[in-house]
Design a protein around this nucleic acid. Structure first.
Length: 478
RNA sequence: GGUCCUUUAGCUCAGCUGGUUAGAGCAUCUGACUGUUAAUCAGAGGGUCCAAGGUUCAAGUCCUUGAAGGACCGCCA
């Protein structure tokens, strides 16, 4: 096995006359002669030509879709069209059989919902191979982007004793026996007897901890799993998802927007440069799918076209106030076509409004900023007008909110009064407030939902199909 | 948490207004062919029509309840 060559390398570099060994999983075996072998290194398969007259019959019988094999032989120029080279097999070693009566994957297209039920095997399809190679690339690109700019990768805790992050419902973590929970005298759960001697949860955000890091290391980012126990039934929410949260000292909202836009474009460019074959495949797959849809439901741009457009154009930066003006003057608002008609400044924007701005009005990614303080979190910096905070959301076509961020409130007195307004207990946040007591400075950051980014780059429709083992209400299989 | 949709062969689906023995393509198996690449040709096997109850002379088809899956809304990334 030491001489094994990856198919990706062979396709690029392989020369006729070389003796090679390739290992992988059989996709199809045609005419007892042609094996299409995939090893996951790239989308393309290597064609192995078998001389079945001179091959043991038990081996020929074992070459079925899904079987794991190694093939050794000489690289030759392919006589057929469709590939530059192929391998003339001299020996074939069978590592693992796949009973064709029971193996659920066939050389045909399966529905995504069926594949979700066999998520442990869906890696072996072209579509999911492409998605997870792209997911890897995007993940690597994010580390490279921040590393090249002098950011430090900071590991924020996954188990947290802080319950004031305010980003959503939390999963409780405990070692207390659920069928016999110890109680205090007044009938409350006695967390003193729990593992951490206090109530703990899975993190919903690493932001507050990242702020602590940024106020010493200047520029940090987190990239880790995040957990929200929201009962969300949509195609863009997960109970366990990966989030990227950069936090930058001496940075205002505009710097923050610039960083976010640069990062998103960098990721897209990186994937375009390194995963072209996978993108072409997904693009093609999507176009086939579009053909079966009625005209008005078809997307205006193909996948790669959409990514290129995104790279070539500045994101539209619009203040909340301006967005409200546009929405109030819009046709659907005037004709009361919106489910929630915008009546006045201060209204919360629903996804129908965001979609109108992104998909109908501007037709490109939009950054909305300076939201009313009443609809945003306590840590966002109060603007001079006293009414708005330095928040920004980046909205992508077809996805909605992909990034949420803000300049943080660095002034202790303002932060304390905001916390009081919003009933955030001061005692529990003293560690956070210390950064404002000692050497506070302007700083800003944001959170990127990694799976939403992958959704956009792959053109997939459901977030459950861009993470290997999705977690959502009622589902924690595998 | 709310609204709506779907469930028929291993997979993707058709099945009209309720009416004989429930169909197709792909996959599988057998045979033919052997430079194919979604191979082709011939044949075969494969069904708890999601479940339970009801209406009816008659239910895959209509009704009720439940289950599973999905879409959208709210919450957000």
């Amino acid at each position: 096995m030491s001489k094994r060559v990856k198919i990706k390398h062979l396709i690029k570099e392989g020369q006729p006359g070389e003796k090679v060994t390739v290992s992988g999983w059989v996709r199809t075996f045609r005419q007892n002669r042609f094996i299409s072998l995939n090893d996951g290194s790239c989308l393309s398969n290597m064609q192995i030509v078998v001389d079945f007259e001179n091959m043991e019959e038990s081996i020929i019988k074992s070459i079925t879709t899904g079987a794991a094999i190694s093939a050794s032989g000489e690289v030759v120029e392919s006589q057929g069209r469709g590939q530059r080279i192929e391998i003339q097999a001299e020996t074939i070693e069978i590592h693992g059989l796949a009973d064709p009566d029971k193996y659920p994957l066939q050389a045909k297209r399966h529905g995504l919902e069926f594949l979700r039920e066999i998520a442990h095997l869906r890696f072996r399809t072209n579509t999911f191979g492409a998605i997870f190679r792209i997911r890897h690339s995007a993940s690597f690109a994010i580390h490279k982007f921040f590393n090249d700019r002098g950011f430090y990768y900071m590991h924020s805790p996954i188990l947290t004793g802080s319950d004031a992050e305010g980003a959503g419902e939390m999963f409780q973590v405990t070692t207390l026996p659920l069928n016999d929970v110890p109680k205090t005298e007044d009938g409350e759960v006695d967390y003193k007897q729990d593992f951490f001697e206090k109530a703990t949860n899975l993190t919903v955000s690493g932001q507050l901890e990242a702020e602590l890091g940024a106020l010493a290391l200047s520029e940090v980012y987190t990239f880790g799993p995040t957990f929200r126990a929201e009962n969300s039934h949509t195609s863009r929410h997960l109970a366990e998802f990966w989030m990227i949260e950069p936090e930058v000292a001496f940075c205002d909202l505009e710097d923050n927007m610039n960083l976010a836009e640069d990062m998103l474009k960098y990721i897209i460019q990186y994937v375009m440069d390194h995963n072209r074959e996978d993108l072409d495949f997904l693009d093609n797959r999507l176009q086939q799918e579009e053909k079966s849809k009625p005209q008005h439901q078809r997307s205006p741009m193909a996948l790669i076209e959409k990514l290129e457009f995104c790279l070539a154009n500045d994101f539209e930066r619009v203040s909340y106030t301006e967005a409200i003006r546009i929405l109030m003057n819009s046709k659907p608002n005037k004709k009361k076509k919106f489910q929630f008609v915008i009546e006045e400044w201060g209204a919360d924007l629903h996804s129908e409004h965001e979609r109108f701005l992104v998909e109908k009005h501007f037709k490109k990614p939009v950054i909305l900023y300076d939201y009313p303080k009443d609809i945003k979190s306590f840590y966002m910096r109060l603007n001079e007008d006293g009414k708005t905070v330095g928040a920004m959301d980046i909205l992508f076509p077809g996805i909605g909110e992909i990034i949420g961020g803000s300049q943080r409130e660095e002034r202790l007195d303002v932060l304390l009064s905001r916390m009081k307004e919003m009933d955030i207990p001061e005692e529990e946040m003293s560690w956070y407030l210390d950064t404002r007591r000692f050497g506070t400075c302007p700083h800003a950051g944001y959170g990127l939902g990694f799976e939403r980014m992958i959704l956009f780059v792959t053109g997939m429709a459901n977030i459950r199909d861009v993470i290997p083992f999705p977690r959502y209400p009622g589902s924690a299989e595998f």
